[in-house]
C-alpha cells in the first residue's frame, strides 16, 4: 500500500450508538486509500484500524457488494450512494475521489427509517409496504404454454424496468420530503403492467399507498431527485402511473 497513487482522505462520519442516542459527526483521517478500492472497502480499511485500536468499528449495511441486493446505502457528501449516476455505494470506487478530499458520510435520514447504529438504518417500513399488497394473490394455475398469454413487448420492458428496483431507499433519502413514492410506484408498476398482477391492480394501489402514508413518509413534490439518485435508474413515470392508477382505483372502487 505504499503505492504513490494512494490517497489520504478526511472523513466526517456520523456516529450514533443507538436509535435513542443523539449522534454526531466524527472526523477521521485515512491514509493509503487505493483508487481501485470500492467505497465500502475504504470503510472496511478504516474499521480494521479502529478494531486494532480497540475502538468501536463503524456499523454500515452491506451484503452482495455487487449492486443487486439493495442493502448498502450512505449519504456521501450529501448525495445518496455518492456522486456517480446509477451506481450503488458498493459499486462506487475511490477513483471518484481525489487525494486530500473531505468526504462526509451519513445514514439515510427519514422518520420512517430510524437510525439503528452509526450508518445503519431500519428500512423495514419498505417491507411493511410490500406486505400491504406488493404481491400477486390470485391463483394463476399451472405454467401456461409459451405465448398463450400475450404480453406487449412495451409492457414487458416497462415491468422489467420497474422490477429493477432493489429497495435500497435512496429515493427516500434523496427526496427533500422523504417521500417513498418512487419505491412504491415501482413495486405497483412491476405487477400492474403484467396480466397476473393486473387483476388486483386497483386494490394494490390503494393498500400500498395507504400503508406508505401511514408509515410517515412525506409527499412527493415532483422534483425527481429520487430518479436522479436511483442506482437502478427507476423513472418517475412510474409515479405518474401510480397516481393515475390510484385515482382510477378510487373512483371505480368495486362495491355493490
Amino acid at each position: 500500500m505504499s503505492d504513490t497513487n494512494t490517497m489520504t482522505l478526511n472523513l466526517k462520519i456520523w456516529r450514533q450508538a443507538s436509535t435513542k442516542d443523539k449522534g454526531q459527526i466524527v472526523d477521521y483521517v485515512l491514509e493509503g486509500v487505493s483508487p481501485d478500492m470500492s467505497f465500502l472497502e475504504m470503510i472496511d480499511m478504516l474499521n480494521e484500524q479502529l478494531v486494532a485500536k480497540n475502538d468501536d468499528p463503524i456499523a454500515f449495511d452491506h451484503d452482495c457488494r455487487e449492486g443487486i441486493c439493495g442493502m448498502c446505502s450512505l449519504m456521501i457528501n450529501g448525495q445518496a450512494h455518492g456522486p456517480e449516476k446509477a451506481t450503488t455505494t458498493c459499486q462506487l470506487h475511490m477513483r471518484s475521489f481525489k487525494d486530500g478530499d473531505t468526504i462526509a458520510i451519513e445514514p439515510w435520514r427519514a422518520r420512517a427509517f430510524p437510525v439503528l447504529k452509526d450508518l445503519m438504518v431500519d428500512r423495514s417500513a419498505f417491507d411493511k409496504i410490500i406486505e400491504a399488497g406488493g404481491f400477486v394473490n390470485v391463483n394463476t394455475g399451472n405454467a401456461q404454454d409459451a405465448n398463450s398469454i400475450l404480453i406487449p413487448k412495451e409492457n414487458a420492458d416497462l415491468a422489467m424496468d420497474a422490477a429493477a428496483c432493489i429497495g435500497c431507499g435512496a429515493c427516500v433519502a434523496s427526496c427533500k420530503n422523504a417521500s417513498a413514492m418512487l419505491f412504491v410506484s415501482a413495486k405497483i408498476s412491476q405487477l400492474a403492467l403484467l396480466p397476473q398482477g393486473e387483476v388486483e391492480a386497483d386494490q394494490r394501489a390503494l393498500s400500498m399507498v395507504e400503508k406508505m402514508d401511514e408509515l410517515g413518509f412525506g409527499n412527493c413534490t415532483n422534483e425527481a431527485e429520487c430518479e436522479a439518485s436511483c442506482p437502478k435508474d427507476i423513472s418517475i413515470s412510474n409515479i405518474a402511473r401510480m397516481n393515475r392508477g390510484f385515482l382510477k382505483a378510487a373512483v371505480s372502487a368495486k362495491t355493490k
Partner: peptide, 24 residues
C-alpha cells in the same frame, strides 16, 4: 407533513443536479 417526514436534517445535503430545479 414533509418537514416532519425528516425530523433530523442532513449534515450536508447536495442536489444531484439531475433532478430538482431552482423552481421546484
Amino acid at each position: 407533513e414533509n418537514n416532519t417526514a425528516r425530523p433530523q436534517k442532513y449534515y450536508i445535503k447536495q442536489k444531484t443536479g439531475r433532478g430538482a430545479t431552482f423552481a421546484s
